[in-house]
Design a protein around this nucleic acid. Sequence first.
DNA 1: CTTCTAAATAGGAATGGTTATAATTTAAGA
DNA 2: TCTTAAATTATAACCATTCCTATTTAGAAG
Lengths: 151, 151
Amino acid sequence: MNFQNLIKEFKKKGYKLTPQRRIILEILSEEKHISAEEIYERIRSSQPNVSFGTVYRNLNILLELGLIKQLDFKDGRTRFELNEGHHHHLICLNCGSAVEIQSCPFSSEVQKAAISQNFSIKSHSFKVYGYCRNCNYKKEKKGDRKGEQRN
Amino acid sequence: MNFQNLIKEFKKKGYKLTPQRRIILEILSEEKHISAEEIYERIRSSQPNVSFGTVYRNLNILLELGLIKQLDFKDGRTRFELNEGHHHHLICLNCGSAVEIQSCPFSSEVQKAAISQNFSIKSHSFKVYGYCRNCNYKKEKKGDRKGEQRN
DNA sequence: CTTCTAAATAGGAATGGTTATAATTTAAGA
DNA sequence: TCTTAAATTATAACCATTCCTATTTAGAAG
């Protein structure tokens, strides 16, 4: 879903289109797995009075509408991205970077397990944790991961 | 790994065996996906002076030793369980309950994707979100999930 | 059994992400 | 242009988790 369609969808549900919302949607359509704080910082560079409340309120609305999904990369903050192109992530335990993988492991076996429990599936999450190309390299070189920065 | 082996493993690594630690290990070997607060409450019923710091410090040590793993059920608190018997979970979005599934979807396709990225895998997480048997039933009956309690 | 000391704990303060509140502003329909 | 429900701002509150420091203790050594 592109930017224009996002806005259309948003208005269709009866929400007002404020400048703040427009920018949040813009940022989300440019950037993957972005955190609330990063969105806040980016809006502030053009609109210095935007508050955290606005960012979180609108992220929660977008979640309810199913337009975005939240990601947990185990770095203490929730991340968000547009809910398009089903995919999963390889997440680096050292630098926090995430790479998309298109391969989805959801199987009929899982489905059977759910059915046998009378469990109705709404979504699933698959995450692979480890060390990325870059951090692997540094580990071999220096044998030290303490000073690294998570970005 | 049973309780006695847990303690053995713990001492082998050079940690002192305090009464607080013994109880935390006891609780973890009795209860699956338990939160720090629940552990705190349960210890307090027999040892009223235990602090949250002690609970969290020891949970983090156990994580480092690989004796427990942390779970995220999207209810705002981290949960923990002994790291034994690889399995995944069906997590109810309404009541927060979790049911183990033995089926693991990790595939050679995922492995290939990781290799092609020079990504070295340490662990993975697979979670299925939806509504459990019980909450499905209530939804059909009442069409209302607002008043439900997450347990 | 005592002494010693590094490690662990208790209690409370601090932190950081997120949510709530209340007064003010505004999008957009009439 | 007027009106008003909805949205925003600024700030306080919340809550899980971590940090700090004085005190206690497990376990090694004598």
